[in-house]
């Protein structure tokens, strides 16, 4: 038994190393591609700067350069390539510029500063967590209702599906305006938008999970003359756990998107969404990209935490080995 487990452990770790290599390779390819893409994306801006600085550029006139392909310009002005990775306001910032910005705005700024990404991430995270809690709670309640009531199954499910076909970007401003008019602002409207996106995967996953016990399992409970609530607590709910965690992982990522979208129409006060918006107002592409990366890192951390929770819970329940 132990030997088997050990062998499995070793196999897992060698598989783990392979996985790390695979991820690193992909990341490496993406970074290379990104640097390559930055050159043509930024070449026109760089050449304009050079022209203003009085340096020789080929062709020398901006009008002539306007209609030329970026690749041609790169070939004609190879000395400008270095500068495409160092601009203040590039169209596409190079990876190291985004990394520097991330470092400066997280480690080198006080977290109370309005320029700290950690401060903004926290604003978004708190709305995400609140929205996720509301969305998960609502999703589970709806799923329980749908599984136990035919009326709810027929009435709620279509609406839940329709709700997700409306673009959230169109709905978010209306939610904020309506709530503002009844005196609710701040974290609540953002959390509601976030809940609006996250309840859906939880409903779908939980309905599937609560219905996962087969006919035999249900017959068995019938032979015990078990009540519906006993069937729920002893069979349906535990059987739905693997489905719930899968949904939660999708749900939390959706929650984060919802919170960010909810920050856009409020006029960019605080939060990662605000950073995105402020960045686009002022052409601060480096700031936009760093906010994007902060959001991605945050999402990865949240999903990762849920994955750890999943493993712990399922292992405790005896459902994972």
């Amino acid at each position: 038994m132990c030997a088997k487990a050990c062998v499995r452990g070793i196999r897992m770790s060698s598989a783990g190393i392979k996985a790390v290599w695979a991820v690193l390779t992909v990341v490496g390819v993406i970074i290379l591609f990104w640097y390559a893409a930055s050159v043509p994306m930024n070449i026109k801006g760089v050449l304009t700067e050079f022209e203003r600085a009085g340096e020789e550029v080929d062709p020398p006139k901006a009008v002539d350069r306007r209609d030329m392909s970026e690749f041609e310009l790169v070939i004609d002005n190879p000395y400008a390539i270095d500068e495409t990775w160092e601009q203040d306001r590039p169209r596409l910032p190079a990876p190291h510029q985004v990394a520097e910005e991330l470092w400066e705005t997280t480690v080198e700024k006080k977290i109370t500063s309005k320029r700290s990404l950690i401060y903004h991430a926290w604003v978004t995270l708190s709305a995400t967590m609140l929205g996720f809690a509301i969305g998960t709670g609502l999703g589970i309640l709806l799923a329980v209702g749908i599984v136990h009531s035919r009326v709810m199954d027929l009435s709620v499910m279509p609406w839940a599906i329709v709700s997700q076909t409306i673009p959230i970007i169109a709905l978010a401003p209306m939610i904020i305006v309506v709530l503002y008019s009844i005196g609710i602002q701040g974290i609540i409207p953002k959390a509601i938008i976030s809940a609006y996106l996250s309840f859906f995967p939880v409903v779908v996953g939980m309905v599937k999970g609560l219905r996962s016990p087969d006919a035999m399992q249900l017959d068995l409970l019938r032979t015990y003359n078990a009540s519906q609530s006993q069937g729920f607590w002893k069979l349906r709910l535990p059987a739905s756990m693997p489905y719930l965690f899968t949904s939660l992982k999708i749900g939390i990522a959706a929650s984060l998107v919802g919170a960010i979208v909810g920050e856009l129409p409020t006029g960019a006060v605080a939060g990662l969404g605000a950073r995105l918006l402020a960045g686009s107002y002022y052409g601060q592409t480096v700031q936009i990209w760093s906010a994007l990366f902060a959001a991605a890192i945050l999402a990865a951390c949240l999903v990762g935490l849920l994955g750890m929770l999943e493993r712990t819970v399922l292992k405790r329940m005896g459902m994972a080995q």
Binding site: M216, D219, L220, N225, P238, M241, G318
Partner: peptide
């Protein structure tokens, strides 16, 4: 008789709950 729990039923598959010992 079912409501009085008159019988125990064994199915073709064991149908044990994987989350219970």
């Amino acid at each position: 008789a079912r409501r009085n729990r008159a019988y125990g039923y064994v199915f073709q598959a064991a149908g044990l709950y994987p989350w219970r010992t």
